[in-house]
Amino acid sequence: MSDRNGGKPVITGVGTGPDTSASPSDSTAGEAAVYGYFPGCELRTRSTALDSSARQACRALRVELREMKDWTCCGGLAPQVRDDYAGLLAPTRVLVEARAQGYEELVTLCAYCFNTLKRAHFMLEHNADARRHVTAFLELGELRPARVLHLLEVLRDRVGIERIEQAVNSPLHGLKVAPYYGCLLLRPAQEIGLDDPEDPSVLEELLGALGCDVTAFQAKSDCCGSYHIVTDPESVARCADTVLDAVAEAEAAVVVTSCPVCQFNLDWRGSLAGNGRTPVVYFTQLLALALGEPIEQLGFDESALAALALLPAPRSSDERSQEER
């Protein structure tokens, strides 16, 4: 690993080979753990709140998301047929470039980018034909892709839910949330490996640590309709209604997601319903808020701000320490 990683990486793990410079995470040393970061197009255009709130939250947790230079498109979605090698070129280029810039691991947030990059990495590792074709096409001497992590994995497995809970200084007590995963964050489980594909729990763990009242939300891994918002919004409306009905049944005040397309589809459908619109926010926004970041800097929309305004005022640390959790 090159100097650009600051000499204090927390990088371990398995996959493309040993990381000789890895050292254990040392949160007390005061230096931030550095990860390569791939924001992707959506976080540069419509979902800037996901990007900025993630950076703010990470800063508070002493995690530095260092954006890789000159990143290119992840490819949109991974190819799913054996010989669609061209579909692997875009994600491979990103992974190889990240590694060349010194990042053993690349953190993403957008579920599309995460799914595409992670599946491409899996295919490069397990499909010799694909590896050979892609290596030849990109004119690479050696194919060395970075590994792919979702920020949720960094928070759960590297920072630790317990440490996050300790860092929370404005707990979101009384905020009833419906954690919504969607598809691409979870499936296919054997390639993505982030959580149980049908009954995941990482968002529940995280939101619980922030003090939220996490509802048992039945539709949490259902599909929102995904890219059919571009081809067939009617179908998306039906998918989104299934999810929003479950939100209403759970009586949640906000839906929490990590995927910009889920966020759009649910919010779009909810806005058509008029009254009773449930805001759809990113987990990073609530994380940053609970870590004490100013609410007006976190990119919440009006409906979310209205829901959050109903929260009880933050209590002093004395009061909090007396509270029985």
């Binding site: 992707g40 197009c41 959506e42 255009t45 419509r46 979902s47 498109c73 490819g75 949109g76 979605l77 579909g87 957008c110 599309y112 980018c113 995904s226 890219y227 059919h228 918002i229 571009v230 081809t231 910009p260 397309v261 759009f264």
Partner: peptide, 15 residues
């Protein structure tokens, strides 16, 4: 189309 998430547009074009 201009209001939609860019990732969804790219994915739809791809698929």
């Amino acid at each position: 189309l201009a209001t939609l998430p860019q990732s969804a547009v790219v994915a739809a074009m791809r698929k």
